[in-house]
Design a protein around this nucleic acid. Sequence first.
DNA 1: GAATAGCTTCGTCTCTCGCCGAAATGTGAC
DNA 2: GTCACATTTCGGCGAGAGACGAAGCTATTC
Lengths: 232, 232
Amino acid sequence: MSGEPDIAVPARALGDPARGRIVTALLGGRSIPAGDLARAAGVSASTASEHLRVLLAAGLVAVDHRGRHRFFRLASSEVAGAIEALQEIAPRTEIRSLRQHHVSEELRSARTCYDHLAGDLGLRMADLLVSSGVVSELKIGESSSAPEPFPAGQLVHALRIRPTQGRRPWARGCLDWTGRRAHVAGQVGAQIFSAMDAQGWVARRADSRAVRLTGRGAALLSELEQVTNELV
Amino acid sequence: MSGEPDIAVPARALGDPARGRIVTALLGGRSIPAGDLARAAGVSASTASEHLRVLLAAGLVAVDHRGRHRFFRLASSEVAGAIEALQEIAPRTEIRSLRQHHVSEELRSARTCYDHLAGDLGLRMADLLVSSGVVSELKIGESSSAPEPFPAGQLVHALRIRPTQGRRPWARGCLDWTGRRAHVAGQVGAQIFSAMDAQGWVARRADSRAVRLTGRGAALLSELEQVTNELV
DNA sequence: GAATAGCTTCGTCTCTCGCCGAAATGTGAC
DNA sequence: GTCACATTTCGGCGAGAGACGAAGCTATTC
């Protein structure tokens, strides 16, 4: 027998600046070893270890042991969702240095958002998905099922997009702090990002959520945009 | 120029048990005076005052002065969204007393969830909305736009449901801790609850999020269910 | 089998948070 | 004007959180 959820438990775990930086780093979607997270959070290894213990106890992160490293990742997409929801109501950090400004610019142009693309590149992919009929126009927070019949086309073929079963929405409009328009999260978002990553369209920065469009990726993307727009 | 959002600020504000109980009470959607919130949170008036100061400073609640009372409410639907997202990943509070058990049962049967209905009654309304074609079947977290053409019918007429413009999704599947199915949030959810409240189908408890179906409401609802199912 | 690297545990310090009761403030009622 | 009530401010207490460095554990490396 259980009553209402006690939001203070996850909120307290997220409510420390260093832990906030840790989970924000993990929002990039990949597994990160403890030492890197310590550096990202700007605290000593022992302090980070304590923070990670807290996050584990609250069930917000999971850990994989690989050799002498411990790789941490967000425990679920629900956790990522809660962090995104908090970002919507959180104040922005102030930019103090040129270095910070540079990082911010990189993130603005393209970055990962848990398991999909965000930033300008995310918006560009969203346009492409809409004009090729893979997803319908989405407002922020709205989501939709896969269209039937499912459209075939160069985009669908190149990135091997396919409708799937499961709890997770097919497409979801996800706003984050970069812009006022929605980029595409949900199953499609995850599928296109993982395909673009696997096929070398994009390269991920080792130490941040930033993503760079490769020369090959830029060329293929432009071609795709041209083909799709000619059809319309 | 600003960088990434600092989630530690809202998370810290929500990360205290007493403040968690306060915002959960406010998730009921109505404005509540400081003294009542102190009672709901189980702390003294002076302690509650301090907590409310923190929540105000973090921008999570807003306040209206009415005479010698100060009525608090959640600052926005984004705040409500963040609280719901945290509820999804939060552990359940344990039930210790018979009194708590009773309250829990009441909430389970029908309650408000910010500005719409949840609990068993919420699920019942969700079924009705789906079978009358006002919203499509929704998974949790999914949302949809108003159907076109917009269906007419006894339900639509009785509760004066109408499609509207605006950022907010028309319908959104909202899971909370009661069940595994989704109830209907979004504009439709808000519209049907406010109509049912205004027309006396439901009565709201003064001191909690619980809602009671009135005799009149029960009768009209049964009739509506019968009519809708005959059509199908 | 040392030596090294990654991480955690331990000991300790400091500082802030959350709590209350008492007093102060402000508003409405008579 | 005075009384009653709602709320905030103040003072003080106790507990716990977060920080670090040093030491310990374990797995890879040579």
